[in-house]
């Protein structure tokens, strides 16, 4: 019994140690901005391409389907209350405030986050990071920091595109298929959606998520055990921790935003 308590304590301390390591890594990444170096911007843009542009297909398709499903389900239920004209606001508010940032972040973690963790973990396993260190090039600046900035920049942009695609999907189902009046759809939406409370807050959420998801991916990759099992673990941990963190932070942020910050 006492052993169990000891184990619990040890794992708690281990968790605190990991948090500390992540914090130190973050410090090194943030305050050694690659921009200062000659091709920092080039490195970052390469990462924005790899993480953002290449994730577009999954984001756009998901957005479209989520918007369409929302419209279908929403109409089904709203019609019972005779409130079908609220379909526009329903979809817009759900997507802008919650679904957009959260779903995009989780999809991003699955596609780009795992790719990052695996890539960095593999570089560790094949001694590429050690080689770089021994060649007097700081791998944190050269490899890790551009990837952090790439994700941080990509996710809000992806969220914007997801939002628009989802609303467009809802328009397709609501107006083209179910036969709503396009004008009412948009004008009801416009009168219910507030730019600052809804659009901007959603973007703020996605900025926070972008930072957290990329940070988790980079950390897991960098500290992965340099074996194939270690890398596999790193990728699964990336997606699990990222998803949990996104959902948890979403709750916290929503509470702050609703309370009116």
């Amino acid at each position: 019994m006492l052993n169990r308590v000891g184990d619990l304590g040890r794992s708690g301390l281990e968790w605190v140690r990991e948090l500390g390591r992540a914090g130190l890594l973050l410090y090194r990444m943030l305050f050694c901005i690659p921009n200062i170096r000659k091709h920092g911007l080039q490195l970052i843009s390469q990462q924005v391409f790899a993480e953002g542009v290449l994730s577009l297909s999954i984001i756009v398709v998901s957005g479209l389907f989520i918007g369409m499903v929302l419209a279908l389900q929403g109409h089904h239920t709203l019609a019972k209350f005779g409130a079908s004209m609220e379909l526009g606001p329903l979809v817009a508010l759900s997507v802008l405030r919650e679904l957009g940032p959260v779903v995009t972040a989780i999809l991003f973690a699955g596609r780009a986050g795992t790719a990052l963790a695996a890539e960095i973990g593999l570089m560790q396993a094949t001694a590429q990071i050690s080689s770089m260190e021994m060649m007097a090039v700081d791998p944190v600046r050269r490899i890790l920091a551009p990837r952090l900035w790439g994700g941080f920049i990509s996710l809000p942009l992806l969220t914007l595109i997801f939002n628009v695609t989802a609303i467009y999907g809802a328009w397709l189902v609501g107006v083209q298929w179910l036969g709503f009046d396009s004008g009412t759809f948009w004008s009801n939406m416009q009168s219910s959606v507030d730019f600052h409370a809804d659009v901007v807050n959603g973007i703020i959420k996605s900025i926070v998520f972008g930072f957290v998801v990329t940070m988790i991916a980079v950390y897991q990759g960098y500290f992965a055990r340099p074996t194939s099992a270690g890398i596999a673990n790193a990728t699964t941990r990336t997606i699990v921790y990222s998803s949990l963190a996104v959902l948890g932070l979403d709750f916290v942020l929503t509470a702050m935003m609703i309370g009116g910050w």
Binding site: A92, L96, L160, I167, W186, M189, Q190, V193, F195, V199
Partner: peptide, 8 residues
Amino acid sequence: VLAFRVSG
């Protein structure tokens, strides 16, 4: 689009 079409 979000600014002008969706949130008016």
